[in-house]
C-alpha cells in the first residue's frame, strides 16, 4: 500500500516541474522562434535576421582578446558608473530622507523645493552638469546620482513620516537611543517605502547611464550602441540593444533578490494585515 503512493506523487512532481517550466519558458521560446523564423530570409536593412544578430553578438562584445573586448572596455565601465552614482544616491537619499522626515518643520520647509527637483525630468540635467563637469566619468556619475536621488529621498521622507506613532512611543518608553532608534525603528520601518524609491531610481539610473553616454562619451554601452547606429552597423546595434536589455533584467533580478531579503518580514506582515484583522 505504501509502495506505489510515493511513486505516483513523484510522477506528479515531475509533471508539475515540467508544467511550470513550460509556463516560464513557453512564450519566450515561441516569441524568439517567431522572430528567428520571420526574419530568417530577411534582406531588410533595418531588420536583419536574428541569426545574423546572434552570430555577431559574441564577436561584437566578447571578441578576443577578452581584456580588450567591448564587454570589458565598454559594458563594465558603464555598469560601474551606474553602481557608483546609484550608491551615492542611495546613501545620500536615505541619510537626507531620515533627517528631513524626522522633523516636521524641516519637512514643510524642504518639501516644495524637493518636489520641484523630483519633477525635473532627469535627462535635462545632463547638459547642465556638462557645463560644470565636462564629459568625463565624474559627469556621468553625478548625472546618475542626481537623477536617482529624488525618488529615494522623497520616498524615504514619506516612509519616515508614516512610522507608527505607537512604535515611536514604544521606542521612547524603552529609552532606545538615537542610533538604536534610527537603526531598529526608522530604517526598518521606512524600508518598504525606501525600497519603492530605490526601485524607481534604478530604472531612472539605467536610463541616465545610457543617455549620459549618448550625449558625449568615448566608451560605454550606450556610446557603443549609438556608434553602431551612426555607422549603420545594424546587426551589431541590435546585439547592443539586446545586451542592454539583458543588463536591465539582470540588475532588476539582483535588486529583487536583495529586497526580498530586506523585506521578507513585510510580505508576511502585509498578508496578515489583509487576511487576519
Amino acid at each position: 500500500m505504501s509502495g506505489p503512493a510515493p511513486a505516483v506523487r513523484a510522477g506528479a512532481g515531475v509533471g508539475r516541474v515540467l508544467r511550470s517550466g513550460l509556463l516560464v519558458l513557453g512564450l519566450p521560446a515561441v516569441l524568439l522562434t517567431a522572430w528567428w523564423v520571420l526574419t530568417d530570409g530577411s534582406t531588410s536593412y533595418f531588420n536583419p535576421p536574428l541569426r545574423t544578430i546572434v552570430g555577431t553578438f559574441g564577436e561584437t562584445w566578447f571578441g578576443s582578446p577578452f581584456a580588450e573586448s567591448r564587454f570589458v572596455q565598454d559594458v563594465i565601465p558603464s555598469v560601474l558608473r551606474l553602481l557608483a552614482g546609484y550608491g551615492i544616491a542611495l546613501v545620500a537619499g536615505i541619510v537626507l530622507g531620515v533627517a528631513i522626515g524626522s522633523s516636521r518643520a524641516l519637512r514643510a520647509y524642504a518639501e516644495p523645493v524637493l518636489e520641484f527637483f523630483r519633477a525635473i525630468p532627469p535627462p535635462v540635467m545632463v547638459p547642465i552638469l556638462m557645463l560644470f563637469l565636462g564629459i568625463g566619468t565624474s559627469m556621468k556619475i553625478v548625472v546618475i546620482a542626481t537623477g536617482c536621488l529624488w525618488p529615494i529621498l522623497l520616498n524615504t521622507v514619506e516612509g519616515v513620516r508614516g512610522l507608527d506613532p505607537v512604535l515611536r512611543d514604544t521606542a521612547r518608553a524603552y529609552r532606545l537611543g538615537r542610533v538604536a532608534t534610527v537603526r531598529h525603528l526608522v530604517l526598518r520601518g521606512a524600508s518598504p517605502q525606501i525600497v519603492t524609491g530605490a526601485r524607481q531610481a534604478l530604472s531612472i539610473g539605467i536610463i541616465l547611464m545610457v543617455i549620459s553616454e549618448m550625449f558625449a562619451a568615448k566608451d560605454g554601452l550606450g556610446f557603443s550602441i549609438v556608434q553602431f547606429q551612426r555607422s549603420f552597423a545594424i546587426p551589431e546595434m541590435w546585439s547592443g540593444v539586446i545586451l542592454l536589455g539583458v543588463v536591465g533584467v539582470l540588475l532588476s533580478l539582483v535588486f529583487r533578490a536583495v529586497t526580498n531579503a530586506v523585506l521578507s518580514w513585510y510580505l508576511g506582515y502585509r498578508q496578515s494585515q489583509h487576511g487576519g484583522a
Binding site: 505607537v166 512604535l167 512611543d169 518608553a173 529609552r175 526598518r188 520601518g189 524600508s191 518580514w265
Partner: peptide
Amino acid sequence: PPEGMAVVLQEYGRSLFPWM
C-alpha cells in the same frame, strides 16, 4: 521616559516591531 519603567500599550499589534 525614566529608567526602570516599562510600558505595555493597548495596541499590541502596533507596539511590537514587525520586522523582528
